[in-house]
Computed example of a mutant assay.
Amino acid sequence: MAEGYLTTHVLDTARGCPAAGIRILLYRVSGNSHRKIAEAVTNADGRTDQPILDKAAFKTGTYELIFEAGPYLTASGVAAEDPRFLDSIPIRFGMSEADSHYHVPLLLSPFGYSTYRGS
């Protein structure tokens, strides 16, 4: 039985703080098909209140997290361009270990971002 799960969080590296209020969508990807399986919003710590994919729903495969960063950047005082350089940020990744904790954070600034497999 799978015991894996997925968590995420967002840190605002330009301001040096957690990024609260960012809407995050999780899709399962299969070929050209994307199916939304979860949605959450970051809390004051920049994390979701629960794993974005818990142990009961976990399956190995390809996934995509989409971070809706545009509204957060606007609310934090970053001047809005038209179109904004970073708005919706997709991160596609694979989870191949059925019993692992996958942590996929987003380090965000107005003009760049990075991610990694965390712990």
Score class of each variant (00 low, 15 high):
Thr74Asp: 15
Ala40Asp: 10
Tyr27Met: 07
Ile52Val: 10
Phe93Trp: 05
Glu68Tyr: 13
Thr60Asn: 01
Glu81Met: 13
Asp99Gln: 11
Val10Gln: 00
Thr8Lys: 00
Leu86Gly: 10
Gly46Val: 01
Ile22Leu: 07
Ala79Ile: 06
Pro90Glu: 07
Ala20Pro: 02
Pro110Cys: 11
Leu73Cys: 07
Val29Pro: 01
His34Arg: 15
Ser119Gly: 14
Arg35Ala: 05
Asp99Asn: 15
Ala80Gln: 13
Arg92Val: 10
Val104Asn: 07
Asp45Asn: 09
Ser33His: 03
Arg23Asn: 04
Leu108Ala: 08
Thr8Asp: 00
Ala19Tyr: 03
Pro110Leu: 07
Phe111Pro: 00
His103Lys: 08
Lys36Met: 12
Ala38Arg: 09
Ala14Gly: 03
Gly4Ala: 00
Tyr102Ser: 12
Thr115Met: 08
Phe67Met: 04
Phe67Asp: 02
Ser100Asp: 15
Thr74Pro: 04
Arg23Glu: 02
Leu73Asp: 06
Ala19Met: 03
Gln50Phe: 09
Gly16His: 02
Leu86Ser: 12
Asp12Gly: 01
Arg28Asp: 03
Ser119Lys: 11
Ile89Gln: 12
Thr8Ser: 02
Ala98Arg: 15
Leu107Trp: 06
Ile37His: 05
Thr62Asn: 12
Ala75His: 08
Thr13Phe: 00
Ala56Leu: 12
Gly31Tyr: 10
Gly77Ile: 05
Ala98Cys: 12
Ser96Pro: 09
Ile52Gly: 03
Leu26Pro: 06
Leu106Thr: 13
Ile91Lys: 08
Gly61Trp: 07
Tyr102Thr: 09
Thr42Gly: 09
Thr13Ile: 01
Ala40Leu: 04
Gly94His: 13
Gln50Pro: 00
Pro110Phe: 06
Lys59Pro: 07
Glu64Val: 05
Phe111Asp: 14
Tyr63Gly: 12
Glu97Gly: 03
Tyr5Ala: 00
Ser114Glu: 12
Lys55Asp: 04
His34Pro: 04
Phe111His: 13
Lys55Asn: 04
Asp87His: 06
Leu6Ser: 03
Ala98Glu: 15
Ala56Asp: 15
His34Gly: 10
Ser30Thr: 11
Glu3Gly: 00
Gly70Leu: 12
Ile37Val: 13
Gln50Thr: 08
Lys55Met: 11
Glu3Leu: 01
His9Asp: 01
Gly118Ser: 15
Arg47Tyr: 06
Asp87Ile: 01
Ser109Asn: 11
Gly31Ser: 03
Tyr5Ile: 00
Pro71Arg: 08
Ala56Gly: 06
Asp49Gly: 08
Gly112Ser: 15
Leu106Phe: 14
Leu53Cys: 14
Phe58Thr: 09
Leu86Met: 12
Ser30Ile: 03
Asn32Phe: 04
Asp12Tyr: 00
Leu53Asn: 05
Glu3Trp: 01
Ala79Lys: 14
Ser88Val: 05
Glu68Ala: 14
Pro71Trp: 11
Pro110Ser: 11
Ala79Val: 14
Gly46Gln: 03
Gly16Pro: 04
Thr62Cys: 13
Thr115Leu: 13
Ala20Leu: 06
Ser88Asn: 14
Leu65Pro: 06
Gln50Trp: 05
Thr8Asn: 00
Ser33Trp: 02
Tyr113Phe: 15
Ala69Trp: 01
Asp54His: 11
Thr42Leu: 02
Glu81Ile: 10
Val41Asp: 02
Ser96Phe: 11
Ser33Gln: 07
Ala19Thr: 07
Pro90Lys: 05
Tyr113Gly: 08
Leu26Phe: 10
